[in-house]
């Protein structure tokens, strides 16, 4: 057990799941978009929708997409910070969704060249899980160095990506593949033990059949 999980982390209150976890969800959505967001629409479900305001969940989610970390004192004024940066944002209640975790948010982010849709939950103690990206089912925590690829669903794609990683001496801790339907687009998530070197995103995107690669570092 890490002793700084017992005393620590340093965070902006009041709640590890409703505030710190919400910031981390926003951070992950921003990283998945992979560029500066220009527009954001965030839907809050269940407990996030019910008690979100009192916990500052709304401010925390916006702070996350601005790239603030859970101990940043600007979280409290994230709406004003977003306005200063000219980022349009909208927060709406999605109400009760019994099929989703109690603390769930969905992001529709738009950058200058890309858009993404990310659904994730704050599962306690500030830890989070991303459950879907652009409609693909996923399940990862952002606690590892993570590689995500959107690629053509054809034989050999997994081998191409893992070869690229093993060539850089990166050890895979977990991986998961999901797809829209056979032969269409698929999504691969690889969680690695080692820090992912510069340029790996570009290298993966050069591979034939890879539409897009995303790299996420643990916050």
């Amino acid at each position: 057990m890490n002793i700084f999980d017992i005393i620590g982390p340093v965070m902006i209150g009041p709640s590890s799941s409703h505030t710190a976890g919400a910031v981390r969800l926003g951070n992950l959505a921003r990283n998945i978009l992979g560029e500066e967001p220009k527009k954001a629409r965030i839907i809050l479900y269940n407990s996030f929708a019910d008690t979100g305001k009192g916990h500052g969940t709304d401010k925390a989610l916006v702070a996350g997409i601005l790239g603030f970390l859970p101990d940043d004192e600007r979280i409290k004024v994230s709406f004003e910070e977003a306005e200063k940066l000219g980022i349009e944002f909208e927060l709406v209640s999605g109400g009760a969704r019994p099929d989703l975790h109690p603390n769930t948010a969905e992001f529709y982010l738009e950058g200058s060249s890309k858009t993404t849709n990310v659904l994730g939950s704050s599962v306690g103690g500030g830890r989070v899980v991303i459950f879907s990206i652009d409609g693909f089912k996923t399940e990862f925590s952002g606690e590892y160095y993570t590689v995500i690829t959107v690629h053509k669903d054809i034989p050999g794609m997994i081998a191409k990506v893992t070869t690229c990683l093993s060539g850089r001496k990166i050890n895979i801790a977990q991986m998961r593949v999901s797809r829209e339907s056979r032969g269409e687009k698929a999504l691969m998530i690889i969680e690695a033990d080692e820090i992912l070197p510069e340029g790996i995103k570009e290298e993966l995107e050069k591979l034939n059949g890879i539409y897009r690669a995303m790299i996420i570092s643990p916050a």
């Binding site: 017992i6 005393i7 620590g8 982390p9 340093v10 965070m11 902006i12 209150g13 009041p14 709640s15 590890s16 505030t19 710190a20 500052g56 401010k59 101990d71 004192e73 979280i75 409290k76 103690g125 500030g126």
Partner: peptide, 21 residues
Amino acid sequence: NVNASMGKIVAAPTAGSCGII
């Protein structure tokens, strides 16, 4: 109070009990 105001605290062990230590 600082925690409930969205100020900076150390979760020790949690945010809810952050004042005691």
